[in-house]
Computed example of a mutant assay.
Amino acid sequence: MFRCKEMFSALALVAPFVLGVVGGLGTVAVSMSPSSAMARSFAPDLCIATGVDTGNGRGGCVYAGPNAPVFDGEVCWNGDVATVKGTAPCVDGSRVYFLRNGEVVDPDLNIVAAYAVVPDACKFMSCVPSSFESQGLPDDLACCGDNGCVPSVGGSCPEGEPTWCTQLEKTDDGLICHQD
């Protein structure tokens, strides 16, 4: 019996490192070094946690299409400007946030343009390839909902959800989205 308890104790010690039994084939041990572990931020999302629709985006982020650049890191947000966090804590009343989509627009000051990605408008409305003759509306947002799609008003959607269109055109038949 004593020998069984020792084996049980040894198993209890290595249990945290065992993934489990797969189809009765045995166990797999996992060993991760710090260099092989992927970093994951537990900071709140900048586009969600800093507010709702602000007229041209969500929270500290401006609306962008599905092909927006991926930043996938932490930024410091002071309520107006996002900067690359780096290894030091945020300063001057800034708070740390996670940012999925964005890009560094001023490398000297580490300023980041933050993007709130919205769905492609072509999922909700008629889309055609871009042409030079089309006269697009000034912004790239269409507000789509249960009642169809309408142009955004000053970059915000009073009704429906914001969607991205490369060039939005108002025609006699309604809205047409011209995509690249």
Rank of each mutant, 00 (worst) to 15 (best):
M1L: 11
F2I: 11
R3N: 09
K5A: 15
K5V: 15
E6H: 13
E6T: 10
F8Q: 15
S9P: 01
L11G: 13
L11T: 08
A12L: 14
L13C: 10
V14P: 00
A15E: 10
A15T: 10
P16W: 03
F17K: 09
F17I: 08
F17M: 11
F17R: 11
F17G: 10
V18F: 05
V18K: 00
G20T: 01
V21S: 11
G23L: 04
G24F: 01
L25V: 09
L25A: 13
G26I: 01
T27W: 12
T27F: 15
T27H: 12
T27N: 13
V28R: 12
S31T: 13
P34L: 10
S35W: 13
S35E: 15
S36Y: 04
A37I: 14
A37F: 12
M38T: 13
A39V: 11
F42P: 00
A43L: 07
C47F: 05
A49R: 04
G51I: 07
V52I: 10
T54Q: 15
T54R: 13
N56T: 13
N56W: 12
G57A: 08
G57R: 05
G57E: 07
R58Y: 13
G59N: 06
G65S: 03
N67V: 08
A68C: 02
F71E: 05
D72W: 08
D72K: 11
G73F: 02
E74W: 04
E74I: 04
V75G: 07
V75Y: 09
N78A: 07
N78E: 08
G79N: 06
D80M: 10
V81C: 01
V81Y: 03
A82F: 00
T83N: 01
T83Y: 02
T83H: 02
V84I: 09
K85T: 05
T87W: 12
A88H: 07
A88E: 14
P89W: 10
C90Q: 03
D92L: 14
G93E: 07
R95Q: 14
Y97R: 00
Y97S: 02
F98M: 03
R100L: 12
R100T: 12
N101Q: 09
E103N: 05
E103T: 11
E103P: 00
V104Y: 01
N110W: 12
I111R: 13
V112F: 08
V112L: 09
A114S: 14
D120R: 03
D120L: 04
A121W: 01
A121C: 04
C122V: 06
C122F: 06
K123W: 09
M125N: 05
P129D: 08
S131M: 10
F132A: 15
F132S: 14
S134Y: 11
Q135F: 06
P138I: 07
P138A: 07
D140V: 06
L141V: 15
L141G: 00
A142K: 06
A142R: 03
C143T: 05
C144I: 05
G145Q: 02
N147F: 13
G148A: 01
P151A: 05
S152F: 03
V153A: 11
G154D: 11
G154F: 06
G155F: 07
C157L: 05
C157R: 07
P158L: 02
E159T: 14
E159M: 12
G160L: 04
E161T: 11
P162N: 06
P162S: 06
W164P: 00
T166Y: 14
E169I: 12
T171Q: 08
G174A: 00
L175F: 03
L175R: 03
I176L: 10
C177A: 02
H178R: 14
H178E: 13
H178F: 14
